[in-house]
Design a protein around this nucleic acid. Structure first.
Lengths: 120, 120
DNA sequence: TTATAATGTTATAAAATTATAACATGTCAA
DNA sequence: TTGACATGTTATAATTTTATAACATTATAA
């Protein structure tokens, strides 16, 4: 699987609000598929499993089988790598542009939220 | 447009390699649609325009019309915001987990690439 | 061991995305 | 003003994604 394939899979996995919701649900500890379905009452169980499958392919969810239960763990490392290799450089680019604009205009860079570089 | 809508649009826009390629192409300066099409020879002009439209909706591309030309500018600020508000926290979460594991195991955290926190 | 709970599999419908084609509009330059 | 260039619009085909249903498998506990 090429790096582009990985980016495709990752961005795709993050590009649906239900899947981001699932990430939130398992952020502080793994949950069984059944437990997730009890929370996501608006969705069919099969739909939840399909979403989990998309996330598993992206490496965001790691499955641990215990008896008849399936525990879905979050693995946030792919997100960390994405930040390091792709998002970070582009975010830096945004700041560079802002700085350029500021220099051209002879003013300071815009306010906190946008110009804030201190994101861990 | 809610914040979730924005995340959907952004992740979706980034979730296709052709669109990431376009971002790269306009990173160092705007390009006309025609110029982009000349580079992306494997795609129909309409397809390129559809991709540009997806990116425009996500706020990644800003269009400047000059005469009969359409200059596509990159705006990386949405990516910066995404990093600050969403990606960053999750990336930090990954590091926290690694630290927890290391502490439990009584060893140091794994090697550079993964444990590296120094991402600008 | 057997009913049931939890999950897995296969099939399919509905919706959205991706890619083209055909035609239309607006602009420049001779 | 007219021909050609750059882009816009509408329609449609092909593919993928999302959602659900029906049935199958596996494991637990009474």
């Amino acid at each position: 699987m090429s790096i582009e394939d990985q980016y495709d899979a990752l961005f795709k996995a993050l590009g649906h609000r239900v899947r981001r919701r699932i990430l939130d649900l398992i952020k502080d500890g793994p949950k069984t598929t059944g437990a997730l379905c009890k929370t996501l009452t608006e969705l069919d169980r099969c739909t939840v499993m399909q979403h989990l499958s998309v996330m598993e392919k992206a490496g965001l969810v790691v499955v641990e089988r215990r008896g008849r239960e399936r525990w879905n763990h979050l693995d946030a490392l792919p997100i960390h790598d994405l930040q390091t290799r792709w998002i970070g450089p582009y975010a830096a680019h945004a700041i560079t542009m802002l700085d350029d604009i500021s220099r051209l205009a002879g003013t300071d860079a815009p306010t906190a939220d946008i110009a804030d570089k201190s994101n861990a």
